[in-house]
Amino acid sequence: MSEYLVNIEDERLSFFTPAGEVKALNGVTIRVKEGEVLGIVGESGSGKSVTAYSLMGLTAYPGKLIGGQLYFNGHHINDMTEKQMRKMRGNEVSIIFQDPMTSLNPVYTIGNQIREVILLHTDKTKKEAQERAIELLKLVGINEPEKRLKQYPHELSGGMRQRVMIAIALACEPKLLIADEPTTALDVTIQAQILELMIELKEKLGMAIIMITHDLGIVASTCERIAVMYAGNIVEYGTTEDIFYNPKHEYTKGLIRSIPRMDAKEHTRLIPIEGTPVDMLNPPKGCKFASRCEKCMKICLTEMPPVTQFDEIHYTQCWLNQKEEMEKNGQAAPAADSEEAKGGAANE
């Protein structure tokens, strides 16, 4: 068994749609230790959800894994049958979805839905399951749990439903909790409650969390490691400090520059990332971010950049970093010349 709870090696995954192949993941490597909180940030369509879903085998047709090895908690996900997978889901790994309004079944009571998980994965009797359900609701901070168990999802508010989702996810004390935009559909004051609850529960139960979000503020306050994704690649990976105080990739830098700061004393103009997100049906050759990158070089347009490792943890996928590192180490820079190729990019 490896030292990592989650070990995704060079995962490649495509969706074969009628319009053509969409390469959702192009060689994604992610490792999560037990009890660690990893944040995955990126725009819609960057592949952040798909990465996490594939761990649970939730990327059904037309999605297909076309390369890479996925290990979780000693399981080799690639070889698992659907039956084995079902045993694992909800037991060792569980997930909280973005929209608590649609992820609970409207025709069953809350109690029914919590007990279902417990009865499915443990030998508990119905009575014990009921007790456990009450315990769980107390854990996630819901008052009058006995009464709530008899209620239907529509009787609860958004924040409450998300708490119920968390209770269901935690029913079997999973080793890993995947939170896919857990607070996007909630209001800020409720978001603060839910984030606080998740971190509190993590300390109490010691599970690892993969937090998928597009909000840099959320990862800053909750995560230890951050992976920044763009168009199916992890363009930068590092500790929270690395990403916020020492970002190396132009996309990460751009993201941090482009958000308005609440604590800014004066009005400063935002610096946006120009251009539009990549069309995943016809992705460009080379670095996917090249067409929006201010420091784009010729080589960026033709070849995918290799991984540049700064220290044990922090790495990027960018030619610019590669070049700088090589020059620093006294090696010859990559063959391509470093002249501005922006004009060439724009003409395409």
Partner: peptide
């Protein structure tokens, strides 16, 4: 105001 997540780990 205090509920808004700040995109700065130390301040947060």
């Amino acid at each position: 105001i205090s509920a808004i997540p700040i995109a700065d780990p130390v301040t947060a």
